[in-house]
Design a protein around this nucleic acid. Sequence first.
DNA 1: TATTTACACTTGCAAAATGCAAGTAAAGTT
DNA 2: AACTTTACTTGCATTTTGCAAGTGTAAATA
Lengths: 135, 135
Amino acid sequence: MSVTKKRSDCPVSCSLDVWGDKWSLLIIRDLMTAKACTYGDFLKAPEGIATNILAARLQALEENKIIKKLPHPDSKAKVLYKLTQKGIDLLPVMVEVNLWAEKYFSIPEDRKALLKEVKKDKAGFIKAMMKELES
Amino acid sequence: MSVTKKRSDCPVSCSLDVWGDKWSLLIIRDLMTAKACTYGDFLKAPEGIATNILAARLQALEENKIIKKLPHPDSKAKVLYKLTQKGIDLLPVMVEVNLWAEKYFSIPEDRKALLKEVKKDKAGFIKAMMKELES
DNA sequence: TATTTACACTTGCAAAATGCAAGTAAAGTT
DNA sequence: AACTTTACTTGCATTTTGCAAGTGTAAATA
């Protein structure tokens, strides 16, 4: 019985990989735009994440303390997911990613409008957005 | 005979995923620190990428025009990989990632030293670094 | 009160991606 | 001419993913 090594256990030293793959990214993106989401909200994302993958990613992100689970104020049956401070601190990364994406891809209009704000005052935008996410 | 759909074909709209997974990221990281690498250089990275995966990622990154293949000045047997302008433009993202990583993880000393420079003058650092990569 | 419905998941299984070891072909070295 | 270096490719076992269906609890509805 040999021990199976997993390459994925070894992080790339720039640490971008700690937040994982595209599906984890989708979760973080949704949480940055909506501030708080339920399990169902993530499932509704246009990219179409599979429910088992969503569950796995939410668990991993929680274990890495990038997101946190909170009781929903409206109902005991619901769960609210939010970014932790560690997750919120990824905002500058996301902003740069979007600026890059705007340059090389076509992006939705609402995102373009936001980026217009960013370009006026990047530091100010990030500070304000972070404050919003923290509340 | 049903058509198999691949989830991975659908990009997350923030477009962080266009540069792919952790192995693609390793390639980009190496190219940002070393400016130009051979196939063997990537294989030597401490994270230990498998050769077939490396080949696949190099091809994908080239198809996405993030890296380019150049003839090696020393030998016809060698190939030089470099970042394209599109790849170089990912530098601000990488800088933010590293700033985040420094806050929440332990990172190598040489990287810490670089980040000290970054914190003194982020815009200046990025501009200078980009210029270096373009040459 | 009984019974659907909503919500947050879990499970089983086929298909795809990954990791490892070994192999190949062209170029460079001795 | 034989050996090595370099950039890959190939085969196969293991792991991960995607899809569909199912489970359990709380809330809404009849």
